[in-house]
């Protein structure tokens, strides 16, 4: 009775098998999950902000300027990274080792160079959001020796930006995984 499981390419001895996830299903679920993670990050920060307004016992309050700026930077970076056209990006990244594209002859077109610069700016904004949230946590809450409840607002800021960074990475990976699949469909 085990022959049929041996002949089929099941990884287990027991008669169950993993559901076969096609690439498009994986991609769809990944994009949903990315959106959910983005929302989670946003609402973590909103929760901290509401806490600061309604229940806060200390005199350290969340303001727009230091506390929401890392989120703004992260969202800007996410928009920039995910609006780059993937086909142009592949061409730009495979066209040489030089960081600014083209090579010694300078034959790289201006668009490849600008795509690399824009991509760099996007990742820099994303990383700037995370490091900005850490610096807000240190400078505004830890240096002021805030107690645990107040400190949680700064920690929520870091968690929010990390969530949005992971969400951006997942969205980016899911959009790039599609390439082989569409190729096989086109055949």
């Amino acid at each position: 009775m085990f022959e049929e499981y041996n002949t089929s390419s099941s990884a287990f001895r027991l008669p169950f098998r993993l559901p076969k996830l096609s690439v498009s299903v994986f991609r769809t679920l990944g994009v949903y999950f990315s959106g959910a993670l983005f929302g989670l990050g946003f609402y973590i920060l909103l929760n901290a902000s509401l806490y600061s307004h309604f229940l806060n016992g200390s005199n350290i309050h969340m303001r727009f300027f230091p506390d929401w700026m890392p989120l703004v930077l992260s969202i800007m970076g996410m928009i920039i990274i995910n609006t780059i056209d993937k086909g142009h990006l592949q061409a730009a990244l495979s066209s040489g080792d030089s960081i600014l594209g083209g090579g010694a002859m300078g034959d790289g077109s201006g668009s490849e160079r600008s795509i690399k610069i824009v991509l760099f700016m996007g990742f820099a904004l994303l990383a700037g959001g995370v490091s900005g949230s850490v610096s807000v946590l240190v400078l505004k809450y830890i240096v002021a020796k805030a107690n645990w409840q107040t400190l949680s607002m700064g920690i929520a800021n870091v968690a929010c930006n990390v969530c949005i960074m992971i969400s951006c990475v997942i969205l980016w990976a899911c959009q790039n995984v599609e390439e082989e699949y569409s190729y096989s469909l086109a055949l």
């Binding site: 769809t28 994009v31 949903y32 999950f33 990315s34 959106g35 959910a36 983005f38 929302g39 989670l40 609402y43 909103l46 929760n47 509401l50 806490y51 309604f54 229940l55 969205l171 899911c174 959009q175």
Partner: peptide
Amino acid sequence: DLGRFLTGFLVISGLSVPVILANNAI
């Protein structure tokens, strides 16, 4: 993908708005 991303965001919004409102005693 844009539609799916917005759907994921909205579903999480619907789940987390009551939670954060209750969390802050509103």
